[in-house]
Structure formats: C-alpha cells, structure tokens
Write a protein that binds this DNA or RNA. Structure first.
Length: 418
DNA sequence: TCTGGGGTCCTAGGACCC
DNA sequence: TCTGGGGTCCTAGGACCC
C-alpha cells in the first residue's frame, strides 16, 4: 500500500508573525489581504472569537478592538521565505510536492508501516525546531484521506501533530463524524446540494452510489468519492508543472478616475507578470488586461471590461507587453467611472525554447531577451524594481499594519540585545 | 469610509470540418 | 417527402483549491 502524507502549516501567516514576535503567543492574531481589505488568516484564538475567514476588516473592527486582536497587513516576502524554509526541511525527509504556500504532500512510499507514525512526529518536531512553524501531518492511503487525517491533528492535540489513518474500521469511524463540507473537493455549492439530500458527513457521502455521485457532481466528485473509499486517484506529482496562466492584479486604496495612474498601475502589473513568466522559462501568446469599478458600491456607475491581446510571436519581453497593455487600456478606459481594481493575465503559455517567429516580426528577439535577462539579474540582486520600465509607477494601496521583513531585508533583521 | 489574489479542471454548447 | 454522424476546437460558466 502506498501512503501519502499531507503537511499543513497551522494558521501559517499568523504563525509566521509569531516566530519573530513571541509576545503574540496566546494572543489572537489576524493577517489582512492586500490593501488591508479582508481577514485572510487567523490564529486559533482569533477563530474562537468568531472572526471569519475572508471577513472584511471593517466588519470585524468591533471584535478586534474589544479583545485586543493583533492585526497585520500581509507580508508576502516574509511568508514566502518562511515557506521555503519549511519546504526545505520537509524535503530532507521525503520527496515533496509543494501544493500551496503552506501545504505539501510527501511521498511515504517505502517507509515501514511500523515506524511511520514516529517518523511523522519526527518531521513535525524538526520543522518546528528549524523554522518555528507548527505543522500538522496527516498520513493515509490517498491524498483526500491524508487531508482528513491532517485536520484531525488540529482537533486532537494529544496526537502531537501527526495522525496515521489506514485501517478501514478507523476510517469509517472518523468519517462518520467528519462534516461533508470539510472534505477536500467539496465546496460550498456541493455541500449545500448534498445536505439537501440528507448527506451531512463524509461517511454518508461514501454510502451514495457512484452513479448518483457522477451524475450530480461529474467525474471530479466521483474521484473524491473513490479517494474516500481508499482508491488513490490523485497521484503524487514529482515535479511542479508549469503554470498555464499567470496573473497580477490589485485593488487600489482609492478609486482612480484618470487614465494616468491606471497606466502606471497596468505597466507595473505587466512588468511583474512578465517577470513571473520568465522565471518559469516560458513565453506567452495572449495577454488580457482588465479594469473594474467598485462593485460593492451600489448606485454608482459600474464598468468591467477586459481586452485580449494576441501576440503573433509568443513573447517574454516586458517592453513588448507593456506597450500592448498600454494600448489595450486606452481602449478600455472610460471617463466618469471610478476604477477600484485592475489586472493583467497571461495565457497560451509555452516553454521559451524554439519560438517560431513570424515573417513580419518587428522585434529584435535576441536583443530583448538579453535585456530582460540583465534586468532580471540586477533586480534579483538589488531588489525588485531597481530597474523598471519608464511607465511603471507606484500603486497606491492601504498597508497600515505592516510587520518587518525579518528574513529578507538587512535593515529589518532582529537585533539581539545582550 | 472600509470588501484579496492566484490558480486548476470539467462541462455544455456552438462553430466548423469531412 | 426524406435532412447523418463523428470529430475537433473554442468559449463561457461553474465548480473547486489555497
């Protein structure tokens, strides 16, 4: 039997803030989305106060003030770096498939069943010691069951962060009290639909016929059903697949009514998205530029529109993309609207090897390529935007609760007083 | 006053081809 | 009067994940 382990960092962003600021231990902590809009991470204490995932900050304001909740703007430099550290530790124990910033599947093939539980606990202890981040490890015969097991760790502290689940009678027992909506692959819609048919737990879901599940939830739902029955359908990915689309988008602190600041924002997003593209050694054939008014404001005029740009020759050049994005924005922009959000998406992404140039290509590709490489190298060494395109500008966002970039900026490193 | 950002996959229906 | 069948590609929309 093959075993999958899922390692999930507990309240990851909140835990990252705590590593460098121990006075936060025991206190409720929340981390905000970009622009300080929503709450996107909560410590256990904050969850117990009833603060919800995705809740707008202003709605939780009263609870926050009453209970002295510590509030942080998101600090992705810190979280990204801490994520690296956690993943590198995990890779010392087993081959790892990084699933998200705070989760990884581990391939436990070949580890003897008798030692598996202890091995798991050792991983949890080592990650905590090396990085300061608490993690939960669930081990089971399928990825979906491993996810269930990892959630049990959080429910039962005596498991010491590691739960091995494989005996059919144990699985049945666990699933009969496991809410259907907490199963990986069952979202809000399906959860509601299943409940309307009397299915409240994962075990009740398992007892449905596969025909019914497939008819109502397509082959994706059927796959979840099989996985809960112990049949592994979602395999271990040995290498990270290239992205098929890459996005950069942001909301703004204030609504933008003029085209100039939007131009600057779009240029900045385009440069960022192009850099991500080159990082995975790809080129893009299509680019979408879009702008949004504030759809939360009823009564004010709304405009949402995107333009799809086709590149005759797939490109990786920031210069070419910025020029095209700028032209697209000019077509989109309408006077008299307040724009709250904008973004750039790249599609039709392929490896950058063997690009077929068209006959009337006006761009000196080798020259652009060399320029981009130079810019990327300099920016990697000296910090983002050391070199940028002239039309890029500051994107104004709310960030009123930032923590230091403890691990990635010399000026922000903690000083130990003796 | 204040509401995130970045992804994937599947299905259905229409266009189009032979 | 009778009006096929099979395949591919594209897109929009809907579901999900973190």
């Amino acid at each position: 039997m093959i075993f999958y382990a899922l390692c999930d960092a507990n309240n990851f962003f909140a835990s990252c803030e705590r590593v460098f600021n121990p006075s936060l231990n025991g206190r409720p902590v929340v981390v905000l989305s970009n622009n300080d809009g929503c709450i996107i991470a909560r410590s256990e204490e904050a969850k117990r106060l009833g603060i919800k995932m995705g809740e707008p900050l202003f709605k939780a304001r009263e609870t926050i003030e009453r209970h002295g909740v510590a509030v942080f703007s998101s600090n992705y430099q810190l979280y990204g770096d801490m994520s690296h550290r956690v993943m590198n530790t995990l890779k010392q124990f087993a081959s790892a498939e990084i699933y998200s910033i705070d989760e990884a599947f581990l391939n436990f093939e070949g580890i003897p069943l008798e030692t598996m539980q202890e091995y798991g606990k050792q991983i949890v202890r080592t990650v905590k010691r090396n990085t300061g981040i608490p993690v939960s490890l669930g081990i089971a015969p399928t990825k979906t069951l491993a996810k269930v097991a990892s959630k049990l760790c959080k429910r039962y502290p005596k498991l010491e962060g590691c739960c091995l689940m494989y005996r059919p009678e144990d699985i049945t027992k666990v699933l009969s009290t496991f809410p259907i909506g907490d199963v990986w692959g069952i979202g809000r819609r399906y959860s509601k639909m299943l409940k309307s048919h009397g299915v409240e737990t994962a075990e009740q879901f398992r007892r449905l016929t596969p025909e019914w599940v497939k008819a109502k939830m397509s082959i994706v739902g059927l796959r979840t059903w099989k996985e809960l029955h112990g049949e592994a359908c979602i395999e271990f990915e040995h290498k990270t697949p290239d992205k098929q689309s890459i996005t950069v988008s942001r909301s703004f602190a204030k609504e933008l009514t003029e085209i100039e600041p939007l131009q600057e924002a779009i240029s900045t997003f385009t440069a960022m998205v192009a850099e991500k593209l080159r990082k995975q050694h790809s080129v893009a054939g299509q680019m979408q530029v879009y702008i949004f008014t504030n759809y939360h404001r009823e009564g004010s005029p709304q405009h949402y529109e995107g333009r799809l740009v086709q590149f005759l020759t797939p490109t990786e050049s920031t210069l070419e993309m910025v020029k095209a994005a700028s032209a697209a924005l000019k077509e989109l922009f309408r006077k008299g609207y307040g724009y709250k959000k904008a973004g750039v998406i790249l599609y039709d992404i392929k490896p950058n090897t063997g690009i077929q140039a068209t006959m009337f290509d006006e761009i000196d590709r080798p020259k652009h390529k060399a320029l981009m490489q130079t810019i990327d190298t300099i920016n990697a060494h000296h910090g983002r935007s050391t070199i940028k395109v002239g039309s890029e500008g500051e994107v104004h966002q709310n960030r009123n609760h930032t923590s230091p970039r403890y691990t990635t900026e010399w000026s922000d490193i903690l000083v130990v007083k003796v």
